[in-house]
Design a protein around this nucleic acid. Sequence first.
DNA 1: TTATGAAACTTCAAGCTTGAAATAATTTGC
DNA 2: GCAAATTATTTCAAGCTTGAAGTTTCATAA
Lengths: 156, 156
Amino acid sequence: MVAGPLPTPSGPGKDRLRLWVRLLRASRSIEAELRERLRQEFNTTLPRFDVMAALYRVPEGMLMSDLSRFLLVSNGNVTGIVDRLVSEGLVARARRNGDRRTSMVRLTEEGSKAFAVIAAAHESWIGELLGNVSEDEARRLTGMLNSFRSNWEGRE
Amino acid sequence: MVAGPLPTPSGPGKDRLRLWVRLLRASRSIEAELRERLRQEFNTTLPRFDVMAALYRVPEGMLMSDLSRFLLVSNGNVTGIVDRLVSEGLVARARRNGDRRTSMVRLTEEGSKAFAVIAAAHESWIGELLGNVSEDEARRLTGMLNSFRSNWEGRE
DNA sequence: TTATGAAACTTCAAGCTTGAAATAATTTGC
DNA sequence: GCAAATTATTTCAAGCTTGAAGTTTCATAA
């Protein structure tokens, strides 16, 4: 995945392959740095941050399945992460009257406060780590990344 | 990480944050698709593919530590993946005379043949999944991604 | 009704991943 | 030479991740 043959290859499709390798290396580097800082500064993890970020947008909460779809991870995965967040008092499950299979998951008051602090740091880290990209360039890159999403997304 | 607040936020730094979210979602989607196909078609995993791809470039082999640096994963991680590849007969460890702490890890004949087949499929998958990106656009995107690597890389 | 199927979750085993601690071998400084 | 520091690797516990199998609840319809 990450490898790029050393005598730089050429041929049809090689440019896309190279793009993918770069994309993956970029996101892995940034992820590694964020994970490290989240651990050092806030004693938390990236998956927990992801879940809290998703919930922060929606005070009324989300279903487990919505959460898993939104975060692009499996159902069973979310169960474990939410379990840990619940045991830390940052997240709460609320059984619903209508459908007893589902439960709304939401940030607790404490979780919401904690997340706001972490999110502020997170945003400034991103600003630092992507500092070489101008705001304008960032917008253009974002647009280009959008364009190739449609190709495989929404198939499941 | 993946979350983007729904009432689209604005302000200084928001464009970089949005870029990061897109970048991460893009690479996660593609990774998920590749992982699925590697499993279905070749009964293997992304980490194993990564290790084999790294080794394929260098017939004489790599040290464990070079492998871990190259793949941006921890040392202990590589140990486990290489262990499994060795038990599958795809990779071999060779103790060196010079330095008995280290061992050269290389693809076996079988591993090399197997990888060539998988790599061809992989490249065509990438061509398919990034089909919306023209070759020209791919080159430009790659260049832009390069530009912001230097900002945090090579710090450790 | 009531069975049949679908949907929302959880559980589970296997594998991946990390950071820290442990081992072993080499290098450095005295 | 030899202690101390460094380097290369493995081991380990904890957590993340997946796909598959299992449970409970709901929806459909004969």
